[in-house]
Structures are given as structure tokens and as C-alpha cells.
């Protein structure tokens, strides 16, 4: 079976920068975007290498603020 691939979408302005999502990603691609500041004044979470995503949805599962939506790509 081909490895699942996914895409993660962030509703950036809801993010409070708690970083919980960065600790649960098995392929370690969720990071805090230190170069941008959202409407609430936090550095929001983002994904750097989206092609590594396996659509496990761990990040969305721990996110307390409904920031993350996950789709399966292939």
C-alpha cells in the first residue's frame, strides 16, 4: 500500500502559539513561524515540508483551538 500523503491547512488567526502541535508530528514538519505574527499577536504554527505529511491528523487532534484541518492527498 502506498504511503498516505496529506496536506495540512492552518486557520492562522485562530492560533495561540501554544506549540502542542509541534511536539506530536511523527515526521516533525510542524513548526512555529517565527517570521510572522497573527491577529492575536502570536507566532502561528505552520508546516515547512508539506510533501512529508502522512495525514495522521495528530496535530489537529491536540490543537485546542480548532486551527488545523487535514486532508488526504494520495
Amino acid at each position: 500500500m502506498a504511503k498516505a500523503r496529506g496536506a495540512v491547512y492552518f486557520e492562522t488567526d485562530r492560533c495561540k502559539g501554544c506549540e502542542l502541535c509541534t511536539a506530536v508530528c511523527p515526521v516533525d514538519i510542524v513548526v512555529m513561524d517565527r517570521k510572522s505574527i497573527n491577529r492575536k499577536g502570536y507566532n502561528p504554527a505552520t508546516v515547512t515540508e508539506m510533501d512529508k505529511c502522512i495525514a495522521c491528523a495528530n496535530c489537529a487532534t491536540v490543537c485546542p483551538d480548532l486551527v488545523i484541518r487535514v486532508e488526504r492527498v494520495a
Binding site: K16, L20, A57, P64, D65, L66, R69, V70
Partner: peptide
Amino acid sequence: TVFEPTKGLTGVEFHYCPG
């Protein structure tokens, strides 16, 4: 879609502290 916000919540942003 693997994960999307539930319809069981209104979508109003929580006032809770980060994390």
C-alpha cells in the same frame, strides 16, 4: 478530509489560555 472542525461547535474562538 481527514480532520475538520466539528459542526458541534459554533466556531466562536475560545477564550481559553494558549495550550
